[in-house]
Simulated assay, not measured.
Amino acid sequence: MGSQLIAHKEVAEQELTVAQLKRIYSMRQTRWGDNTPIVLFVLPSQHQDHKTFAHQTLKILPYKLERIWNKSTFSGLGVAPIVVNSPEEMLKAVAKTPGALGYMQEISRNEQVNVIKITK
């Protein structure tokens, strides 16, 4: 099973396409449909779950993602994703941060977060 998206409970989106995800993770889409700012959480680039998410879900190499974030941050056009150290931290951070979006390898139905379906 691939990565699953998790969002803050108040995020209304129930599904996102791979194209939307690429826009969000490459900092070209920074707001949800209701205009709430998207707060991205990621695992460290060397973490296996991050590599899996980048490769299998986004179809992009982790170092290329980091390059996009650095360029966006240094140019002042965007804010880099917030790095958390573990899937447990990811779950807690997304649950308590309005507008948050993150990913996990496996999550069962969870009352703390909104699990978003990834569509083609």
Rank of each mutant, 00 (worst) to 15 (best):
M27I: 01
G99F: 02
K51V: 03
L91V: 08
I38P: 12
L101W: 06
M27Y: 11
L16N: 00
V115I: 10
L77S: 11
L77Q: 14
G78S: 09
Q4W: 11
L65C: 04
P98I: 06
H55I: 03
Y25N: 00
T73I: 05
H50K: 07
N70T: 13
Y103N: 00
P62N: 01
G2A: 13
P37F: 05
N114P: 10
E111H: 13
N110F: 11
A80L: 08
N110M: 06
Q20Y: 03
L43R: 03
Q46Y: 15
K120L: 00
K120V: 06
I118L: 01
A80W: 12
Q112L: 15
P37A: 00
F53Y: 03
A95L: 09
P44G: 00
K96F: 06
G78V: 02
D49V: 06
T17M: 05
H55A: 07
P81G: 02
E15N: 10
Q105H: 15
G78D: 05
W32T: 00
Y103L: 01
S45P: 15
V94E: 03
H50N: 04
G2K: 14
Q112V: 11
L91H: 14
S108Y: 15
T52H: 12
V84F: 12
L61D: 13
I60M: 09
K120H: 11
L21Y: 05
I118K: 01
I116L: 03
D34C: 00
N110C: 08
E13Y: 05
H8A: 04
Q105D: 14
V18W: 12
K59C: 07
E88G: 06
I82Q: 14
H47D: 10
V11C: 05
P62E: 02
E15K: 12
T17K: 08
E106L: 14
K9V: 08
P87A: 07
Q29W: 11
Q105S: 14
V39Y: 10
A54E: 03
H50G: 02
H47M: 02
I60T: 11
E106I: 14
T17C: 01
V11F: 00
N85S: 14
V115T: 07
S75A: 07
